[in-house]
Computed example of a mutant assay.
Amino acid sequence: MQKEELVYQDNHFTLDTYWLDPISDYATQVERPIVIICPGGGFKFHSDREAQPIALKFNAAGMHAIVLHYQLVDENHSVYPLALQEMATTLNWLKSQKDVHHIDLQKVILNGYSAGGHLVADFNSIMLDSDRRIKVFEDDLKVIPAVNILGYPVIDMTVGWPIEEDWAMKIAPDIYYWQAQEHLTKNGKPTFIWQTVTDGTVPVMNSILYAQKMDILNIPYELHLFGSGDHGLSLATYVTQNPGNAVNLNEYDAKWWDLCINWLKMQKILPKL
């Protein structure tokens, strides 16, 4: 893993990059898909359980991976719109890395968990519509994501999370950014969504609302709602288990990963074999 520092209008932020090295046996190098991962953490921190372990799983499936350390709530900043601007800056930066790391820029994936899922959903809704994007990010968007993957995402900050409205105001003083589903247009990209119906932190209605809006707009999606399991499962295996914490394990929910890989093949991000 290597760290990369990027800047948007004097605001510095970091990426953890997990590049796949070229294979010397190949006569021609393969251009590989890349995923930008946005961990959860309630906009207070970036969960390591949804960072490196996820990145390495994508690496093992033949994809480059980046963990975006997007803007959190602090004494000087709210999350929005700066986090959207950081994501756009990261996507534009990828163009400069295309030949260096053999990236297929037609196969860029945005992946968010919990609060990070809200960032990805908001980006899909707001930043892929040129008229709305220009109000947030003045530069052209040189690289457009192909698909999204959302794990137990916050979609609508008026539906169960956060509980305190004052925290929502700290995340985004402008309520325009609160409800990702309200701004989704036909420019949104296909999205894989998974959550548990027993999620005690982010109500499952968040995932349903986003899928419902995608359905109305005829945007391809796949929604998996598992019958049991806690919030923040990550891979739901021992790899991301907080030692001694049994609620991090769920053999049924862990199947989300294989379902997701299958969906990426359906979307032609990955080859069938």
Rank of each mutant, 00 (worst) to 15 (best):
Y177D: 05
W178E: 01
Q179A: 07
A180D: 05
Q181R: 09
Q181K: 00
T185H: 02
T185E: 07
G188N: 00
G188M: 03
K189S: 01
P190Y: 03
P190W: 01
P190R: 02
T191W: 05
T191G: 03
T191H: 00
W194P: 06
W194C: 08
T196E: 06
T196I: 04
V197W: 02
G200E: 14
V202P: 06
V202W: 00
P203W: 10
M205V: 01
S207P: 02
Y210L: 15
K213Q: 13
M214T: 00
M214G: 01
M214Q: 13
D215M: 12
I216A: 15
L217G: 08
I219V: 14
I219L: 07
Y221F: 13
Y221N: 04
E222N: 08
E222C: 01
H224G: 02
L225E: 07
F226Q: 08
G227K: 11
L233R: 08
L233G: 15
S234Q: 13
T237G: 11
Y238A: 14
Y238F: 14
V239S: 14
N242F: 14
G244V: 12
N248P: 01
L249A: 12
N250R: 08
Y252C: 06
W257C: 00
C260F: 07
K265T: 03
Q267L: 05
K268M: 07
